[in-house]
Amino acid sequence: QNPIIIKFSHVVAADTPKGKAAERFKELAEKATKGRVKVELYPNSTLYKDKEELEALQLGAVQMLAPSLAKFGPLGVKEFEVFDLPYIFPNRDVLHRVTEGPVGASLMGKLEAKGITGLAFWDNGFKVMSSNVPMKVPADLRAKKMRIQSSKVLDAQMRALGANPQVMAFSEVYQALQTGVVDGTENPPSNLYTQKMHEVQKHVTITNHGYLGYAVIVNKKFWDGLPADIRTELTNAMKQSTQYANAIAQIENDNALDAVKKSGKTTVYSLTDKERAEWVKTLTPVQKEMEGRIGKDLIQSVNKEAAALGFK
């Protein structure tokens, strides 16, 4: 009997944390189902590009994806923009309380109406700011042209800093930073390092102001049509892959930051408590500003999870 094929497509290289986690899932899933399931990986957007993959999944052209969380807003699930809000997650523990708890489950539930089943949240990491000027306080970014990926929340965030947000495709960023079309950008350290952006940015400040993550999703019709035992095995495999994904993402970011420091091309600055407080103060109002889009209740329920861990 022919194995069930899962086409798992993603837009990054195979040796990135997400790529490695996808490979781990393939191993675990194929082993646990004793070959009844075959996972075909398509890294690097070889089949579908960033902008196409969600539609391809809904059409059933691929079965599994791990898009960035920012992709769900345009799909009509604006609630996912909560992940883009600055300083909404004080640390990783709060983040995982959200993604692995009821709030995360309810978010994933909203995808069902779009023909999508959400299986897991995978971390990339918290973002740092980079530019060609030293950044200690938000005012240092005044009037600076900051590249963002297309997002109303990130636009509001950069405007709150007094910066001039510029929407630009990821593929164009390196050259734009190098020539000075834009002055700076925000990235988790691993993206900054693998895209060699530190070569063209003089300063990095560890602001940890925002989060970048992915959701592993499957075509709902395909998922519901799987034999129950296989679905259970795949769910387990996904759980283990998620732990692995989050662990290596953390390591990768730490290593990347070390490597950036070691390269000597970029000054890496850690904020003092007082400076950090100023960033938080400047950026937190964005949460209020975006209530209308994302939902007041949702933002509050995330803040409640933070409060449960002692953050107010």
């Binding site: 579908y48 059409l59 495709a169």
Partner: peptide, 19 residues
């Protein structure tokens, strides 16, 4: 087995690039 609908998708997104 590639769904034929992906053709329509590609016909639009194929040139949906600022470059």
């Amino acid at each position: 087995t590639v769904p034929i609908e992906s053709v329509a998708l590609k016909l639009f997104t194929g040139i949906e690039k600022f470059e």
